[in-house]
Each structure stands twice: as C-alpha cells, then as structure tokens.
Amino acid sequence: MFPGEIDVLPATYLDQLGTIFARFAPRDSGNVSYGVEFGGTRYFVKTAGDPAATEPYLGFDDRVDLLRNAVELARSVNHPVLPTLHAVIESPAGPLLVYDWRDGDLLGDPVTRERFQALPTAEILAALATIYDLHAALDALGWVECDFYDSALLYDFQTRGLTVFDLDTYHRGPHHNTMGEMFGSSRFMAPEQHVLGAPLDTRTNAYVMARVALVFLPEPPPALHAVLLEATTTRFPSYQAFYDAWLTASSTIAE
C-alpha cells in the first residue's frame, strides 16, 4: 500500500496521498509529524523534519538515526499499547514512519494529567499495568529507557485505552550516560540520568517506571507504595525484580 521510497518531500507526498488533518512540529525535537487520512483510515506519520533547521537540539542526521532506532524498537516487540508500524518510506528528507493513528489526550498536558489523576484508583492501576507489561517485554529484549515521561502517553477517557509512543531514544543494551543531564522530565528520571558516565541499565527501567506510578497515582495502596518506595530508594536489582514485586503486591489488593 505504501511505497518503499519517494522522490518528493514528506509533506508533498502526504498531501498527494490523502488528507492531512493534523501537523505536529515541536521546535525542540525538530521532528515533524502528521495525521493523515487515506482510504478511510487514519495514520500517524513521523519524519525528521526540515534538514536545514538549526533550532533543534539535535541535528538532522541525529534525528534520522533516532527514527531508525524507533523502527528497530517497533519491529522488535509487538504490544497492543504500541501503535503498529505499517511502513518506512525513504525520502530526500529522511524516512517517514507510518503508524496507526490512536485517539486520546496527551497526559503531558497539565489539565489532562490532573483529569487522569482524578480517575478511580482501579482505572489508573489498569493503565499502569499496560505500561509495566510493555516495559517487561522491552526490558527482556534489552531495551533501556531514555526520555520517558507523560508526553509519551495518550489516554482515551471514553474507551479507557492507553497508548505509548515516541520511544525513539530507547537504547538497546546497557550503556553509560554521555550527556550529563539527559533529555526528559526530572519528575520521571533516575539519578543516573543526571550524572555523566553513570551506568544506564535495567535498574534505570525499574526506577523510572516506579516514578511513573508515583506521578500518576496520588494515593497508591500501601502494598504498592512500599514497592514504589523500595524502587526509588534502596532500588531493585532489575526491572523484572521490580515488576515481580509489583505484581505480587497487586494480587494482594485484588484479593
């Protein structure tokens, strides 16, 4: 359905393909993404943006590298919370990543986040369960969290469906912090994401996911709060150890 390569710029191709009904161009990232309707189906298309843009923190080549990393991640794991990657189209301005379109409100918006935090605890826990299950799959494949925060989450308040996206910066395998202060929101970041040369690994995944619950769940049940406290103080040796403890604590609540 989609070509492997085009010889025009992404916006030109998408305009010819169907109807562009949304455009997203955050100045700091340099990426430009589109909502496109074609053949009665909606798609989310992400590109590296303008090759000549000088405002973004990352140059064009680095943005392209991150998109190719996103392709590797998408092809390594199949999970319902992740939009399906349908195609990668090469263009003179880098690849176009064609995903499912997902409805929902961005939890990075303060009003939306407060609305989500006000939901019944059971509904928030159900959403967290999908995030944690996804990261169990990613962790098992060696992916290490980078730059995960509330703006990587969409929540559909009608269907109670959660979508996770924009995991382009995740790293395959343990590595070290080469930036010092890494990308991301300090509300979600692990201590090692602030320290140049610090190791980043499965323990980082555990810490960040614990922070996700502490941000979104204002009053976690005591059994879960104990797990989150351990994850962010003495810390678990791995994401799987954190996840196992979370599941055990969750089962006691269900009873």
Results as ranks from 00 to 15, higher is better:
residue 86 H to L: 07
residue 90 E to C: 09
residue 90 E to F: 14
residue 91 S to I: 01
residue 91 S to M: 06
residue 93 A to R: 01
residue 95 P to K: 06
residue 97 L to Q: 02
residue 97 L to N: 03
residue 100 D to N: 11
residue 101 W to P: 08
residue 101 W to D: 12
residue 101 W to Y: 15
residue 102 R to Q: 11
residue 104 G to K: 08
residue 105 D to E: 15
residue 107 L to S: 00
residue 108 G to T: 05
residue 109 D to I: 04
residue 110 P to G: 09
residue 110 P to T: 04
residue 113 R to H: 04
residue 114 E to T: 02
residue 114 E to I: 00
residue 116 F to T: 00
residue 117 Q to T: 02
residue 119 L to C: 03
residue 120 P to E: 13
residue 120 P to F: 10
residue 121 T to A: 05
residue 122 A to L: 14
residue 123 E to S: 11
residue 123 E to N: 06
residue 125 L to K: 04
residue 126 A to Y: 09
residue 127 A to G: 11
residue 127 A to Y: 01
residue 128 L to V: 06
residue 128 L to D: 05
residue 129 A to D: 15
residue 130 T to H: 13
residue 130 T to M: 12
residue 130 T to L: 14
residue 131 I to P: 01
residue 133 D to P: 07
residue 134 L to K: 02
residue 135 H to K: 07
residue 137 A to I: 08
residue 138 L to P: 01
residue 139 D to W: 04
residue 140 A to G: 11
residue 141 L to R: 15
residue 143 W to L: 08
residue 145 E to T: 09
residue 146 C to W: 14
residue 148 F to L: 12
residue 148 F to M: 06
residue 150 D to L: 15
residue 152 A to R: 00
residue 152 A to P: 00
residue 152 A to E: 07
residue 152 A to M: 02
residue 152 A to Q: 06
residue 153 L to N: 01
residue 153 L to S: 00
residue 154 L to I: 09
residue 156 D to P: 03
residue 159 T to W: 10
residue 159 T to I: 11
residue 160 R to Q: 13
residue 160 R to H: 14
residue 160 R to Y: 08
residue 163 T to H: 05
residue 163 T to V: 07
residue 164 V to M: 10
residue 165 F to T: 02
residue 165 F to W: 03
residue 165 F to Q: 03
residue 166 D to E: 11
residue 167 L to R: 02
residue 168 D to Y: 10
residue 170 Y to K: 03
residue 170 Y to G: 00
residue 171 H to N: 05
residue 172 R to F: 10
residue 173 G to V: 08
residue 173 G to Y: 11
residue 174 P to G: 05
residue 174 P to D: 10
residue 175 H to W: 13
residue 176 H to M: 13
residue 176 H to G: 11
residue 177 N to F: 09
residue 177 N to S: 12
residue 177 N to D: 14
residue 178 T to K: 08
residue 178 T to A: 14
residue 178 T to L: 10
residue 179 M to R: 15
residue 180 G to A: 08
residue 181 E to Y: 13
residue 182 M to S: 11
residue 182 M to F: 13
residue 183 F to G: 13
residue 185 S to V: 02
residue 186 S to Q: 09
residue 187 R to A: 10
residue 187 R to Y: 09
residue 187 R to T: 01
residue 188 F to S: 00
residue 192 E to Y: 03
residue 193 Q to Y: 12
residue 194 H to R: 14
residue 195 V to F: 01
residue 196 L to R: 12
residue 196 L to N: 08
